[in-house]
Design a binder for these strands. Structure first.
Lengths: 211, 211, 211, 211
DNA sequence: AATGAATGAGACTTCATTCAT
DNA sequence: AATGAATGAAGTCTCATTCAT
């Protein structure tokens, strides 16, 4: 018989996570303190501890939720039963990632939280497991996609679909990293480069085919 | 006139950084403490503070040195005046990265330190600048490479070399991330997938060329 | 005009004290928290505060009630107008104490709460006064008893009745302490020892000296 | 190669314990805080934590040391190979206890710390074991003593020496408790009462034996 | 130059109590 | 009268850094 509705409870929880997210982005993994999170959340110390058992739980929730949210945004694209050809699909994926980063107005890039998660997951065993599961899941979805491409004749059937999945996973993760580290990464650049770079030089190939 | 030789000083410095590196890998960015680093270095508290001004300086040195060391390992490959075709070059790059990770025997993957660096660089302005410069440098080297490929006819000249540089940067960074996050990433898979995925279906292209 | 009957109020009050007693026994003076007491009482936070002004009041009530209950159990024995000789009376007293400890079925020894009271009374001035009054009362009753023994010829009239009262008080309190601290204390052992120890065995000795 | 001598270290440790003892006496088990102990010790927070792992360790050390010190003061009396008769020995024991309480000039009665220990030992398992061992040890020494009395003909040989040990333990502990709880307890009163109370009235006894 | 004990600001968390519903 | 979410003061402890020796 909760005095507070589940809805309100969930809203408060999100309020705390939102504050934690902002602090994580602004101060970094090492420097976030409960004091900061509490102050920004607008709640009292005790209230925050009523929603989360401790700092670790908050940080992990921020990271886990972030990973889950990104996976949810990518899901419709990756599970498309009739996917567009690779370069077009990558365009959709990277665009979703850019959009994911900008999700909340007035916020800094949500992708930066992901990078903190990548670091934090190295040490916290529980988070490590969750992270590994999430990214292995992403790779599996790319694998399924590759198989659909092969079935549709869009992709060479001699290539291992798992190999394609790994490459696409790297491009996706690398795009995130590059935006954070180099300061920018252009999605159309990635798409056009992918079109150009892949194949062995065409002329040579054509020549060898029409000797 | 220093009481101890420069050589000895440098050795001590490296001893401290090595300890910090190990602790960073083992405990993560949040949990490393000076106490740990000092204990593992085998030096006294005071001695460590004789070599570094504080914890931040040590952590930043570990990260900066790591980034620099990886850049140094990649340099001969990326500055090759007569580079092999893209997929072969990527193979060399990824192989260098794998080797970089294993550098010290008995150690855990040195690449994990990089991920901590990616996180830490978001907050520390000085490190952020250094990191950005380093990864922008990587991208520039890929750009130069792309230009050499175009000059040699190995790459379509209509594509912007900067776009290619971005894609290759993403693949490189993404490979690192994927190894850490998904637990594995196979370099030959990346290479073979790159060969297969890139181009739009050849037959279509060929057809349009021979109407 | 109270909304609930006095009877119900008293029952609720006892319910809270019972919970506090159990928590005190289980967790000790330092570790008991209102949260524990409230949880075990089955009432809500607000309800508990409707019966007691705060934690101190509850703890003090538990201790004071405990002391009073023990005094009440001892009263009929100590105020017996025609008391049995000392060793027999001590037997009755110690038996009453053992019984007092076991009062509630399923509970741990109620005497343990007494020890917490002894400690707590050192610091809380109000409790200190109440405790001192209670144990001074016990001593006074033993004194009255000694006078009755002297009047009845059961006790040497040259001895100060107050001195006897002090000794009997020590034995009583010490019996409680020993049960708690050494883990056991046997009442018949106390009685038989008391018979044997007091005087040098006069008759036997005298007899053996003048055969 | 300690920079600080063992002697100095021990002195600092004792300085902390002394502060804790004083705080325990003044504020009681529930109310002592590290802040108090630290302030009174004259050391810094960090320094105190360099000597003790935490509050529990300090409190337990105070209590354990107190029990041990009292046992040490009683040892020569209890292990006397040619002990005086019971009432005289009890006099020595109680006198040692009174002296123990006054040990440090300017201090409050050290016995009060014992009472806090009795309470605390109920909850802390480690302390409980130590306390039980200590008081069981006391009882064993009284037992040995009783056997020596029996061998010397000072004590009825038909009585179980263990029973005598229990009684003497109760008197000893009860004397401590009574001093704390009733505010006073006179050692000579105990001794004279013990002489008077133990046996059934001698005249009656003698009379009944020689009708 | 070297040592490591000491410092103390500040981190995290608990918990007795209040008060809007 | 009853509820239990919220409050925030106060507690325990850590850890980067300093400095007397």
């Amino acid at each position: 018989m909760p005095r507070i509705t589940d809805e309100r409870r969930a809203a408060r929880r999100e309020q705390i996570l939102e504050a934690a997210r902002a602090c994580l982005q602004e101060y970094g993994l090492e420097a976030v303190s409960m004091e900061m999170i509490i102050a920004r959340s607008g709640l009292s110390t005790g209230a925050v501890y009523g929603y989360f058992k401790g700092k670790d739980q908050i940080i992990n929730a921020v990271i886990t939720d972030g990973t889950a949210a990104m996976a949810a945004d990518l899901a419709p694209i990756l599970t498309n039963p009739d996917p567009p050809p690779p370069s077009e699909l990558i365009e959709q994926v990277l665009r979703a990632i850019v959009d994911f980063g900008r999700h909340k107005p007035g916020d800094i890039d949500r992708l930066l939280v992901s990078l903190h998660g990548w670091s934090h997951a190295q040490s916290d065993p529980q988070l490590r497991a969750a992270t590994r599961a999430a990214y292995a899941g992403l790779r599996r979805r790319f694998d399924d996609l590759a198989k659909r491409w092969q079935a549709a004749g869009t992709l060479d059937t001699t290539i291992d679909s798992k190999a394609v999945a790994q490459l696409l996973t790297s491009i996706t993760l690398g795009f995130v990293a590059q935006r954070a580290l180099a300061g920018s990464a252009d999605l159309t650049a990635h798409v056009s480069a992918l079109k150009a770079i892949g194949p062995p030089p065409i002329t040579a190939r054509t020549a060898s085919r029409h000797p």
